[in-house]
């Protein structure tokens, strides 16, 4: 799964809307917030939300190409928190990466990140920027190495584990990706989408194995079914979970069912349940599901 497919047209529309609202927002909020005694009289109060909004606007403006507003956002963040704030440093990095024209500019930014990290190796936001830039420069092996080092001293960072899982996944190292996803689930045990993702990775690693009757493959598909079941348990009418359950049980049918710990009947029941739920979701009007996902579900039902 690439970045392209993960962003829906809804999200692009959202970015465009945010970016269009930016100039007005920047004008409405003055650059200089009133200092203490005056701030009691002023209507404009400082809140964490305000700075979160600046951060979000900065990214939206950069994405839509409104560099002037983005620069203004960044300037205000620097004025407020100082250029040496770790989070602000990372945001400045995002800005510079976005306006970089040539590969040489990117190399220079990478050098800057490395100097920063040499001075302070636990600057996590900048370390993440460096990893992202390495990926962007197609240096996946370096990115994985840096990410593993990052996780060594910050092992409770779900975001980093998730990123590492996707890196391993795109490199085809499925067992390592599964390990990383399990680490994410230790931190966020009720995350239904991570359960579904783990199910997908297990399914793909099981289905990519062409040897039939392989006990190990059947084992992988079994775990995949379990993960999808858990995701459905955690989220009502979860299209992604039911879709995966249907696919995984279908695959278990194809691979001989003789090895299964679970009886063939249970698998059959699960498959029927997934079909029923998918049909119900597809038939529903104005359900709020993604159109592409609905179309895929429709195709899957028709095939069976």
């Amino acid at each position: 799964m690439t970045m392209t497919s993960s962003q829906s047209s809804h999200q692009f529309a959202q970015v465009l809307q945010d970016a269009q609202a930016a100039p007005e927002f920047l004008q409405g909020n003055s650059a200089q917030l009133p200092i203490f005694p005056l701030s009691l009289l002023s209507r404009q109060t400082e809140s964490a939300e305000l700075w979160n909004t600046y951060e979000k606007l900065l990214v939206s403006c950069l994405q839509s190409g409104d560099e002037k507003s983005a620069h203004l956002c960044l300037e205000r963040l620097i004025n407020r928190f100082g250029a040496s704030n770790e989070r602000v440093m990372a945001l400045r990095g995002v800005y510079e990466e976005a306006i970089a024209k040539t590969p040489r500019d990117l190399e220079r930014i990478l050098q800057e990140y490395e100097t920063t990290l040499a001075a302070n190796p636990v600057n996590i936001p900048v370390a993440k920027r460096r990893i992202t830039l390495l990926q962007s420069l197609s240096r996946q092996a370096d990115a994985i190495k840096a990410l593993v080092e990052l996780l060594d001293f910050s092992p409770s960072d779900a975001e980093a584990w998730m990123e590492l899982a996707e890196l391993y996944f795109s490199a085809g190292m499925y067992d390592r990706a599964v390990f990383c996803l399990e680490e994410v689930l230790l931190i966020a045990p009720n995350a239904w989408n991570i359960h579904a993702r783990l199910g997908e990775v297990l399914y793909i690693s099981g289905a990519s194995d062409t040897a039939k009757d392989n006990a190990e493959t059947v084992e992988l598909l079994h775990s995949s079914v379990q993960r999808f079941c858990r995701s459905i348990e955690l989220c009502d009418d979860y299209l992604r979970g039911y879709y995966g359950l249907k696919m995984a049980t279908n695959a278990l049918f194809e691979k001989a069912a003789t090895h299964t710990k679970v009886s063939a009947k249970t698998i059959k029941d699960l498959n029927d349940k997934a079909s029923g739920a998918l049909r119900k979701i597809v038939d529903r009007k104005d359900s709020g599901y993604n159109e592409d996902e609905l179309a895929a579900a429709r195709r899957l039902i028709e095939k069976s």
Binding site: Q7, V59, V94, P125
Partner: peptide, 13 residues
Amino acid sequence: KGFIDIRQHRQDF
């Protein structure tokens, strides 16, 4: 957010 690939996002947009 920490790993946002801004150049890819710009291109997609």
